[in-house]
């Protein structure tokens, strides 16, 4: 049996073993095996929002009507945070795509009473909707505020429901949802690779956001596979890689790349002169 089939068997048996063997972050050294992760090159990201709608389309995220936005209950598993710097004429907008960081030490996981969110063997912070009882404790724990609560059952007026992705559960009211790293695509790749008796190839899995991103600001792969592009990228770009809110010690699986552009200094000088 190939090792990915082994892997699949292990994943299948996890359900019955659960309770005794749900891996905690401490039990799964994320230097071993697969660790899915993403590299986000902020220098490439233009804030174009393609990833945002791609994720909505892939993951059956409920419509964010105006009232939802006004109530701040709009759900965007990935959102483009825009930060202002300076004032006219030297104002700058900075864009950061923020999605679940799939933390190696996830503060959301420890507080969930019912294992609705836990760390799987491939480094994903998994959200099991059926288990979730909607305490929202995990959302408090997450310093990135990427967990969204379902205040109602989502509704798609006919025939809009036709577009729902059958691979992804439609989440009911009363539970928390968030970016899954498009786990349905990972699972599909596992099945395909398993049937073909091989390992998942680098680049075989692409989450919807990364697939759409015109500038390739988002790249996704197994960070532990040194042959994967993101792993190499993170290595090569070590001087400009960082993780979000590093001081929380969450060990994110999302690595950001950003170096200050040298031109910024010109403006600073101007600022100083002014």
């Amino acid at each position: 049996m190939s090792s990915s089939a082994n892997e699949a068997a292990a994943r299948a048996s996890a359900v019955s073993e659960m309770g005794r063997t749900i891996p905690t972050d401490a039990e799964v050294p994320h230097s071993e095996g697969v660790r899915w992760g993403m590299v986000v090159d902020l220098d490439r990201c233009t804030g174009c929002q393609a990833c945002v709608v791609a994720c909505q389309a892939e993951n059956n995220i409920a419509l964010n009507e105006e009232q939802r936005v006004l109530e701040r209950r709009a759900k965007t598993w990935i959102r483009i945070e825009r930060y202002w710097e300076g004032e006219f004429p030297n104002a700058k907008a900075r864009f950061i795509p923020v999605l679940c960081q799939h933390c190696g030490n996830a503060p959301c996981e420890t507080v969930c009473p019912v294992w609705a969110t836990y760390h799987n063997r491939e480094g994903l912070n998994v959200q099991v909707y059926n288990r979730c009882i909607g305490t929202r404790f995990c959302a408090n724990g997450c310093p990135y505020s990427v967990r969204y609560f379902n205040f109602w059952n989502p509704e798609w007026p006919e025939p809009m429901n036709n577009q729902l992705n059958p691979d992804v559960t439609v989440r009911t009211k009363g539970i928390i949802e968030k970016c899954t790293f498009c786990v349905q695509r990972i699972n599909r790749a596992h099945v395909t690779a398993g049937t073909e008796g091989r390992e998942i190839r680098p680049g075989e899995v692409q989450p919807a956001c990364a697939q759409s991103c015109p500038t390739s600001a988002l790249v996704f792969a197994d960070l532990n596979n040194s042959e994967s592009y993101p792993a190499q990228l993170a290595e090569a770009e070590a001087d400009r890689s960082y993780t979000l809110l590093e001081h929380f010690g969450t060990d994110p699986g999302v690595i950001y790349l950003k170096k200050v552009d040298p031109h910024a200094e010109i403006h600073e000088d101007e600022h100083a002169h002014a």
Partner: peptide, 12 residues
């Protein structure tokens, strides 16, 4: 459920 509650959670 096949899962005991999470003993790390204060909600348990």
């Amino acid at each position: 459920r096949g899962a005991w509650p999470n003993p790390r959670s204060p909600l348990v």
